[in-house]
Write a protein that binds this DNA or RNA. Structure first.
Lengths: 249, 249
DNA sequence: CGCATATTTGATAGATTTCAATTTATGTGG
DNA sequence: CCACATAAATTGAAATCTATCAAATATGCG
């Protein structure tokens, strides 16, 4: 298990061209590692954050608490993500972030991340581009819960997570998504019971077989079709760069 | 009518402290003004954008096209907003943006905005913070369409737009939201018919009276309560600043 | 083994959609 | 200013999807 934020830097570099010095500066970003048991919140709505969290291992969710005890999951974050990077720009937490499984995170102090942004404009640029990409996913999520029925919403969610897991290849493959059916319900705005029935449906249609934390995609093309899934909002063509190398001031 | 992007700069300054030079540089951002008739798309999903649009006047919506001809509105943009500012970082349009009413926009070329970001880190910072705030709204929108029933979803939407309009004050007030009931349906994931019935409900409950483009909030406290609305995701306490004044390179 | 959690199934109630039709605005050209 | 065309709002009834309630069956873990 990689205990550094290297996987996060990988994600940044998929979209933003970074030079050796910037990469080194990012690698040097320290932070305290923490182990969280499942169902533990590590960012609370309204908190004034002083650090951003890097997910080393585990699955996390951004959660909106609704009036009648219901919860709405608005994003999943897998290892290599920084669910609250935005707080380096606006420290107030606009939602709660919870570990769905037992999870290891590294807390990176804002002062450190901000010092890097100040010194290396390309790093601010890389962070910004990461946040823009994250926003595009949330945008798609709105369409998922608002516009699709249970079958295509759940299909779409599994399509997204399949691509983000990096395991999608061929017409049949397997990836890990350690969530309960109740979690899927909270993500898609459906009741647990209906998620269960829809899983049965997808299984019988030979599209998707979910066994606990393991998702077996039985027919990728058909699943994509059922979800009306277009992954272009997830993929990046080529890393770019606006910024000059280093701030001389 | 203000034909410059001054209102956008105001919004940036609500969150990011800018000095005179930066403000002047932003003001100097030129761009071609365009008049768009209602229902006209000016950003198309998949396009490789070369400019970002500033909304001078009118109402615009970010739209996701769904399979069966349904559409999901994932954001409203009012005058003073830049709906596709993100494209200055990632030029590929991840959704369609449409003028719901007849609208005036100014297209700001990416090269100009990017040159400013390169020269003034604080401007990149301001843009980023604007995008983070926009993402927080989308996040709340997920909760709205996924987790709330028709009555509270529509209430919540009107609460949000009331605050964003800047007209919310006292327990009773009026603001403009030039949308059709069909638009509201597409925004909340509801059928037009059900939107209509819910409007009747809200009117009879003396919470909200919608007459065409005009929304009369009849009881702000009760409406907020029905929506379970907490505006803290919209408001900013104080402008901040990380960046040094100017890139000397 | 036994508790706690997760999954599965059934039956029923409820919210929302769809289809169809009518009425009411809104704008436009004569 | 009216007549017409068009879009928007409104209402009703039936169909459908999804939620809720309740219970039974797995599954994992100490």
């Amino acid at each position: 298990m990689d205990r550094t934020i290297a996987p996060f830097i990988e994600k940044l570099q998929a979209r933003t061209m970074l030079n050796d010095e910037e990469r080194a500066a990012l690698m040097a970003l320290g932070g305290k590692a923490e182990c969280l048991e499942a169902r533990r919140s590590f960012v609370i709505l309204g908190d004034n954050l002083t650090s951003s969290c890097f997910v080393v291992d585990g699955l996390c969710a951004r959660i909106e608490q609704l009036s009648d005890g219901k919860r709405q999951i608005t994003a999943f974050y897998v290892s290599g993500d920084m669910p609250d990077l935005y707080s380096a720009f606006i420290p107030r937490a606009t939602s709660t972030i919870e570990a769905l499984t037992s999870t290891i995170i590294i807390r990176v102090p804002h002062v450190a991340a901000q010092a890097l942004m100040r010194q290396y404009p390309a790093i601010m640029e890389a962070f910004s581009r990461y946040l823009v990409a994250d926003a595009a996913i949330t945008n798609e999520w709105v369409a998922n819960v608002g516009g699709r029925d249970a079958k295509s919403a759940i299909s779409h969610l599994y399509c997204e997570m399949a691509v983000r897991s990096g395991k999608a290849s061929g017409n049949e493959f397997t990836f890990q998504l350690p969530v309960t059916q109740s979690d899927i319900g909270e993500a898609c705005g459906l009741s647990t019971v209906h998620v269960n029935r829809t899983f049965t449906l997808l299984r019988n249609a030979r599209l998707l077989l979910v066994e606990g934390a393991t998702a077996h995609v039985l027919n990728w093309q058909a699943l994509r079709h059922a979800a009306n899934f277009d992954e272009s909002y997830l993929v990046q063509t080529m890393p770019t760069r606006l910024s000059a190398d280093r701030l001389l001031a």
